[in-house]
Design a protein around this nucleic acid. Structure first.
Lengths: 363, 363
DNA sequence: GTGAAAGCGCTAACAC
DNA sequence: GTGTTAGCGCTTTCAC
């Protein structure tokens, strides 16, 4: 397998290298038969353009960099999160003949910015995807934007004014899940917030509050606890909720890991799920279908978000000035076995809430 | 942040571009003070060598490709597996200033080989890592070796004659876990085999057999079931084992996902773990610490294996003729809460087996 | 120890 | 529509 070059192809096809270049880059202004001839020559020689030469000559690469919080720093808890991002990004990369470079960062280490600088100037990526919670760190965003590299942020919290971003409807879907629990007859619904640092925290909690409000149920602050996104944290929080004078009949955790911790604590205490207590989570991690009973949860469109991000980046390549894309992709509620009618409640005919966002789906 | 080139640095340092090149590549034959002068200039200008130009001129890249079975085709079950491989590979890549390209393949699709060809000729990777179970597919190995790209295989089954490979001690560690269970007083130990396609299956099962043999316990074939690496599969298998006339007092599953299924089934039947039944798995996936009780399992040194693979590849770069590396890195037993003395058994003083491979560690 | 010249394989900017 | 001329920024080869 000796490497054929563009000149070899040009010679065989009886055209100039530039014409071959036009064909492989699908540029206009090539006669159909010339094009066919070139393509034949390409096939005959098994020619593959050398990416490095292309990158060097055209000053841009076909590499997309996906940056996310290093799951190692969380003991691999968020592993489904990372894999789904990768999966979507890879799909779009394949479709666009780009390659994906992964860069997990432990944001604890402060060298990230200089690492990023090095990466950008050495690799000149076609684009960078910055996943939450990193998408929320001004320092990083600035470093990337400063270099002129196209950037898409995934689920940046707060006002997503700055550059391109793709988010999910956290607020709405948390509201919807809350209303779903209410529709099952629950009126005392515990809520365990996510880790403070994570930008989605606020939207999720506000969604819960709104769900209650829309259902006409007053917010009881004693039912709301600060969690840390971990399973042990969920366990601890559940213990506190269950020891309340008026314990909740449902517990809604801001992620699945905490929900799993809740379930552990509940089972230890001999409380049955969902007959005596309903549990809901968020993320639809692998865990959700591995715990018993299977967990009702919210599935975020992570893969789709990353996929769209790559698409935007690839399209955007010739520095589109104001590419201030700001998309929202809706999540989905997955009803499984961990939620059911509140104790002492008749089973309702229709347990599914009306949907104005994302929709509700069984598994 | 305008890009400084090697010529800029050369000019500022008052030397030729070639000398700068020598410095950044750590080539010999540069006087210490020249070197210092160049490094100062590099710092002043914030110079970063353009990888594409280097790659083009030197005909080799600083990209390592990690190829593994697409977790999507397994519904993300093996997500910890992938992440730990990535994590190790990334660590070594950072240390060696290389970048990591990830390529999950669903081996169901047969186009993999031509995709691989394209990848190799376009990207000219410095090396490829082929993870199990893909490391066992002759077609892929041939395609890579045929291109002359350095290859390291991870846990290829069978005789690892061909090229470089890095494996773990599946056989020994499964034997050890089995002996550990015996040391707890278990004599009827169920075993659920892994998916047929996975090359490690054979070694794991043979380790179990040897563990029994060394303990003087005859192999009872009715206690050995074929699993499929999935949680539901483990559940089904457990049901069959528990309905046996003489059910086992311990169940050893060839991976954690199946072990989780076992635990589900056991809990449904109201059997207590570990008092009435011990359960052990393999992989130390995130799951192992998320199920209740936490799962006793085997931790494979996946990250370390991938890390070593990258190191070998990077060192190997100038096609070392016979780089037939063949390393074995030992796994570790993680004793958690799901295993205990067999029912009706006194608690032994020392529940830990003698170790001749890998060693035993609590958490 | 250091430098000059000649590409690596492709694309940019123009000419025709 | 197509070809020509120059590089892209670095490393190679070989001279000194």
């Amino acid at each position: 397998m000796i490497k054929a070059t563009i000149t070899d192809v040009a010679r065989l096809a009886g055209v100039s290298p530039k014409t071959v270049s036009r064909v492989i880059n699908r540029e206009p202004n090539v006669r159909a038969d010339t094009c066919a001839e070139v393509e034949r020559a390409i096939k005959v020689l098994g020619y593959r353009p050398n990416q490095f030469a292309r990158n060097l000559a055209s000053r841009r690469s076909r590499l997309i960099v996906l940056i996310y919080e290093d799951p190692e720093s969380h003991d691999m808890a968020s592993c489904g999160y990372v894999l789904r991002l990768q999966s979507g990004a890879l799909r779009a990369c394949r479709a666009a003949s780009h390659e994906l470079l992964i860069h997990p960062y432990s944001y604890a280490e402060r060298e990230v910015v200089s690492e990023l600088d090095a990466l950008i100037s050495q690799v000149r990526p076609a684009g960078i995807i910055l996943a939450a919670p990193l998408s929320n760190i001004p320092e990083l965003v600035r470093a990337i934007e400063g270099s002129g590299t196209p950037l898409v942020r995934l689920s940046p919290g707060g006002k997503q004014e700055t550059p391109c971003s793709i988010s999910t409807n956290d607020h709405e879907i948390f509201s919807e899940m809350t209303r779903y629990l209410v529709s099952l007859g629950h009126t005392r619904i515990g809520f365990i917030k996510g880790h403070r640092q994570h930008s989605a925290v606020q939207n999720r909690y506000s969604g819960y509050c709104e769900g209650l409000r829309e259902s006409g149920i007053p917010l009881d602050r004693s039912l709301v606890l600060q969690g840390d996104n971990s399973t042990p944290g969920g366990k601890t929080a559940a213990a506190r909720l269950l020891e309340l004078k008026h314990p909740p009949t449902a517990i809604f955790a801001a992620n699945d890991d905490m929900a799993a911790g809740v379930m552990q604590e509940v089972i230890i205490r001999g409380i049955r799920i969902p007959e005596q207590l309903s549990v809901a989570g968020c993320d639809d991690s692998a865990l959700a279908q591995q715990v018993y009973p299977n967990l009702t949860t919210i599935r975020q469109p992570l893969a789709r978000m990353a996929e769209r991000a790559v698409e935007a980046l690839v399209a955007h390549t010739p520095q589109k000035a104001d590419g201030s894309l700001s998309e929202i992709i809706a999540g989905t509620i997955k009803i499984r076995e961990s939620t059911g009618p509140a104790p002492g409640q008749k089973i309702l005919t229709n347990t599914r809430p009306s949907t104005k966002s994302g929709g509700v789906a069984g598994r």
